[in-house]
């Protein structure tokens, strides 16, 4: 029986979906050790402690809230110091984070502060006696690597969507904690948060992604990709590096080996050749559709469904057909 600490990340005072997934993973880990407690750590501006009940719903027994006006933004140094202080005063079998901009930043800081072993980006975990075994897709998602971690606390970060947030309601014991380092005196200081385009889900959360490549020929033709994404409804828009290098789309939209790694229910590749570095970021999507005028394009090797044709003609037709299909529902 061992307790597990989990960092439940928030942005703008709201819990992120990945936070509930991390809590679910922590619940699984605690249960696998014979039924320890899950302690969820949440940080934010005053009021964030109110997220305790939501965290209890996904299996947290204790919610530790770090509240401070300066924590309206992600003040990493203060958060890392406070989690580390907590972990030193209690004995945790593991610390779970999300593999996100926040989790990637905090995990290694905690590993160094606590001299604790760390594995990032896991998709599965198993406990057998003292050993913690995890799975991590490495080498740009080409190889599933099984790793054993010895020592406590083991720090792991979970890949988005790999652990489903399951309801496992608890009565939460709420605690507050004082910052171990002043969040308004950090050496790395957030000066501004730039919100992305509203109305579209992030690439990690979107069930559908429509991605465009150089085959679109000109930046204004990305409108066709946007329109198709709108027709699906809950879709995000992605791009290849050829496109982000041209400046047609921001680098943050890039999917692949040096961009984002995604695995939506449906991935529509529009005018994308299917270079190995692009496939590295999307080949684990559930269903892949490719539209390309070259029937030899490598993207067709991974696509479940392909249409050979000019994207400038096929995509508007597809947008229309998807709109109609949606109406029919």
């Amino acid at each position: 029986m061992a307790n597990v600490l989990v960092f439940a990340e928030t942005r703008g005072g709201e819990l992120r979906k990945l936070a509930t997934e991390a809590v679910a993973a922590a619940r699984r880990l605690a249960d696998a050790t014979g039924g320890g407690e899950v302690h969820a750590f949440v940080a934010g501006a005053p009021g964030v402690a109110q997220k305790a009940d939501a965290l209890g719903r996904y299996g947290a027994d204790v919610v530790i809230a770090l509240e401070h006006p300066a924590l309206a933004t992600f003040e990493r140094e203060s958060i890392a110091a406070t989690i580390a202080a907590r972990a030193k005063s209690a004995s945790y079998r593991a610390i779970v984070l999300g593999f996100s901009a926040q989790g990637r930043d905090l995990g290694p800081r905690l590993a160094a502060k606590l001299d604790a072993p760390i594995v990032s980006d896991i998709v599965d975990l198993e406990v057998a006696g003292d050993a913690l075994t995890v799975k991590h897709p490495g080498y740009a998602n080409k190889v599933m690597i099984t790793l054993t971690i010895s020592g406590s606390p083991a720090i792991v970060s979970v890949r988005p969507s790999a652990f489903s947030a399951q309801e496992s309601p608890r009565t939460v014991r709420a605690e507050t904690i004082a910052p171990a380092a002043d969040p308004s005196a950090a050496r790395v200081k957030v000066t501004q948060v730039v919100e992305g385009s509203k109305g579209r889900p992030d690439l990690a959360d979107a069930p559908v992604i429509v991605a465009g490549g150089r085959g679109l020929k000109a930046p204004e033709n990305f409108k066709l990709v946007e329109d198709l994404a709108d027709a699906f409804g809950n879709a995000a828009v992605g791009a290849t590096r050829a496109v982000t290098d041209e400046g047609w789309r921001p680098h943050a939209d890039q999917i692949g080996q040096t961009g984002r790694q995604v695995s939506p229910q449906l991935y529509v590749a529009v005018g994308i050749s299917g270079a190995i570095q692009h496939l590295a970021g999307m080949r684990s999507s559930k269903t892949i559709v490719a539209i390309n005028r070259d029937k030899e394009a490598p993207i067709f090797k991974v696509a479940d469904y392909g249409i050979i044709g000019d994207v400038l003609e096929v995509v508007p037709a597809l947008t229309q057909a998807v709109r109609e299909a949606k109406k029919g529902h």
Partner: peptide, 16 residues
């Protein structure tokens, strides 16, 4: 292995 559904805009009905 995937499959080619068809060629040109006419193939979208089958794809959907």
């Amino acid at each position: 292995p995937g499959r080619i559904v068809g060629e040109g805009p006419g193939a979208v009905t089958e794809l959907v």
